[in-house]
Design a protein around this nucleic acid. Structure first.
Lengths: 118, 118
DNA sequence: TGAATATATGAGCAGATATTCATATATATA
DNA sequence: TATATATATGAATATCTGCTCATATATTCA
């Protein structure tokens, strides 16, 4: 089958349907952003952190204890969650307490849990 | 900070809260499955395929045309979507038509889109 | 000021993943 | 049967990602 580097040049295409579906697609940028958002909750460590924080504000070492993981691993993931504005923090002395900003994400997680049950 | 390989041994832990949150966590296996599910929709190619198929049943080369990607790339991703039971297919001669099994996943995608708009 | 604690972060590594290329398989048709 | 088409798939590669280790930073307290 001949194809160039940019697109496919195959001959079985149903042009009408392709055109129709193409016009209803979102932009590449929108799809990319969407995938980036889901990427955040596609790692079980991050899901655990978000889930734990949905119950209570927690410091880094509490999270490390709950997840049975090293402090630095937790810190690295918290940075990602902070950068994507899913969590916020407040400092109390040398202890840093993290909490959820975005409860929307918990809805998504819950939907995933429901889905898994089916 | 001293830590062993299995867990953290730091001293700032709020035992009561840790115990409380710990008991409300899901199992590691559940978190893992959850992350696996979100992993499927954390790739923009797969999201595009699912989105396109939510509009209409499509063959592989139509998908390749719509996404402007090579046929083999689409086939590889379709296999993943097939293995995770998100899509099904029917053959009509040498053409293979794919369609959605799981409309639930589209709800998740839509929630993501809504979220992005906020 | 010095020591201890709590967290953050850079470098490096190991494992995962998406795409491409080449090719195999399956079907239709001349 | 031979050829062309449609799809599937294995291997190779490049990129990404999460964790660990070591260390830096910040804060508290003696």
């Amino acid at each position: 089958m001949k194809q160039n580097n940019d697109a496919c040049e195959i001959f079985c295409i149903n042009e009408k349907i392709v055109k129709e579906v193409k016009s209803s697609m979102l932009s590449d940028e929108e799809f990319f952003k969407l995938s980036e958002n889901f990427k955040i909750i596609s790692d079980s460590t991050r899901i655990k952190i978000l889930y734990a924080l949905s119950k209570k504000e927690l410091c880094v070492c509490d999270l490390a204890t709950i997840l049975k993981m090293k402090q630095s691993a937790i810190s690295h993931q918290l940075r990602i969650l902070k950068d994507t504005r899913l969590v916020k923090f407040r400092k109390e002395g040398k202890i840093v307490y993290y909490s959820l900003i975005d409860k929307h994400v918990i809805k998504l997680l819950d939907m995933g849990v429901e889905h898994a049950k089916e």
